[in-house]
């Protein structure tokens, strides 16, 4: 549900999304060393594969976004990684669309960057039970922010979308639960097994 299709949003929202994404991409690409491209690409591919995972929550099942985790691990490189994954999902899987690519990237990448900036430092210092909790928090925050941004985009496009936007936001609840749980365990695992993965120097 994080992928808004084409033809829904209004032009000002689309343009805002495109401008924000272009700015984020430009900043991120300047920071991305050619030496780090293979690493960013392999991790981006890993996230692409992980989003195919279908996680049962209660009676339904969800596909993870993992933007909180991406932010914490990739830092700024999460922006181009998300952009590339979204291009492929739109073109080969029919998730999302072409003109909304900017908005969709913004909705997923901004929370990733926020998670990296706000929760990354605390997470790196934590151990044991606390790394699990901070991991879960970053997973939940990533999804919550994405859901809020998606609903905002809908609501700002047209007042008629407001009820639909609320329903969309509500559908993020199961995703948030699954994402928090899986991200928590993933980061706990990584901190134990390969802590260098989340302490990569920028």
């Amino acid at each position: 549900m994080a992928h808004i299709p084409d033809g829904v949003l209004s032009t000002p929202v689309l343009i805002t999304g495109a401008v924000v994404t272009t700015g984020l991409l430009a900043a991120a690409i300047r920071r991305l060393d050619f030496d780090r491209i293979p690493q960013a690409a392999v991790l981006s591919a890993a996230f692409f594969i992980a989003s195919l995972l279908s996680v049962p929550v209660g009676p339904s099942s969800v596909h993870l976004i993992l933007n909180g985790l991406m932010g914490v691990i990739l830092g700024w490189a999460a922006v181009p990684a998300i952009f590339v994954a979204l291009i492929m999902q739109a073109v080969f899987f029919g998730y999302g669309g072409l003109l909304v690519l900017g908005v969709n990237t913004m909705n997923i990448a901004l929370p990733a960057l926020l998670c990296a900036a706000l929760l990354g430092p605390a997470l790196r210092r934590s151990d044991g039970r606390f790394s699990l909790i901070w991991g879960a928090v970053s997973g939940a925050v990533g999804v919550l922010l994405t859901g809020t941004l998606v609903s905002l985009c809908l609501g700002l496009s047209s007042a008629d979308f407001l009820p639909a936007a609320k329903v969309v936001l509500a559908t993020y609840t199961p995703l948030m639960i699954a994402e928090a749980a899986v991200t928590g365990f993933t980061l706990g695992f990584i901190l134990k097994v390969a802590p260098e993965l989340i302490t990569i120097p920028e």
Partner: peptide, 29 residues
């Protein structure tokens, strides 16, 4: 897979393992 702690932990470790192996692979690349 079910809606329980065991599943979430297993999936968390699965994603973690995928990422750890990817990182090692990227260093080799």
């Amino acid at each position: 897979a079910g809606s329980n702690r065991h599943t979430w932990r297993t999936f968390g470790w699965l994603v973690g393992m995928l990422l750890v192996r990817s990182l090692e692979r990227s260093e080799r690349i």
